[in-house]
Amino acid sequence: MPVPAPTAADTALCPNCGQPVSASAAFCEACGATLVPTEPAVSEPPAPTEGSAQTRRLGVRQSQVTTCSSCGGTIDADGYCQVCGAKAPSARDHYSETPADWVGGVCDRGVQHSRNEDAMALWAAGDRAVLVVCDGVSTSVDSDAASTAAAQAIRDVLVERLAQLSDPGQAATELAAAFVDAAAAANAAVIAVTSPNSTNAASATLAAAVVLGAEVHFANLGDSRVYFLSAADPVLLSLDDSMAQAFIARGMDRAEAEALPRAHAITKWLGRDATDIVPRTGVHTAAEPGWVVVCSDGLWNYASAPAELAAQLAAAGSESDDPVAVAAKLVEWANAQGGRDNITVALARCPAPAMPTNLESATPWVPEVEEQVENG
Rank of each mutant, 00 (worst) to 15 (best):
N200Y: 05
S195C: 03
Q170E: 02
S198L: 03
A202D: 07
A189H: 13
A178I: 02
D181N: 14
I191K: 09
V193C: 06
A184M: 14
G169E: 06
A171K: 02
A178S: 15
A171C: 04
A176L: 04
A182R: 07
V193T: 10
A177R: 14
A189Q: 14
A186L: 05
V190F: 02
S195G: 10
A171S: 05
A182T: 09
V193A: 04
N197R: 15
A192P: 05
A172R: 04
S203A: 15
S195D: 15
A202Y: 06
A178L: 04
T173I: 04
N187G: 13
N187H: 14
N200L: 13
N187I: 13
T199W: 05
V180Q: 12
T199V: 11
A176E: 08
N187Q: 08
A189R: 11
A189Y: 13
A185L: 11
A176R: 08
A178P: 05
A189P: 13
A177N: 15
S198T: 06
A201W: 00
S203D: 09
A185V: 08
S195K: 05
I191A: 07
D181A: 15
L175E: 03
F179R: 02
V180Y: 10
A178E: 05
A204I: 06
T173C: 00
P196D: 09
A171P: 02
A202I: 10
A204R: 08
D181F: 07
T194M: 14
V180L: 10
E174C: 01
A204T: 15
I191C: 13
F179Y: 06
V193K: 14
L175G: 01
V180I: 10
N200F: 04
T199M: 11
I191D: 10
P196T: 11
A185N: 11
S203C: 12
G169D: 09
V180R: 11
A186H: 03
Q170Y: 00
V193M: 12
S198Y: 01
A202W: 03
S195Q: 07
A189W: 14
A172S: 07
A201F: 00
A188K: 15
V180F: 02
A201S: 12
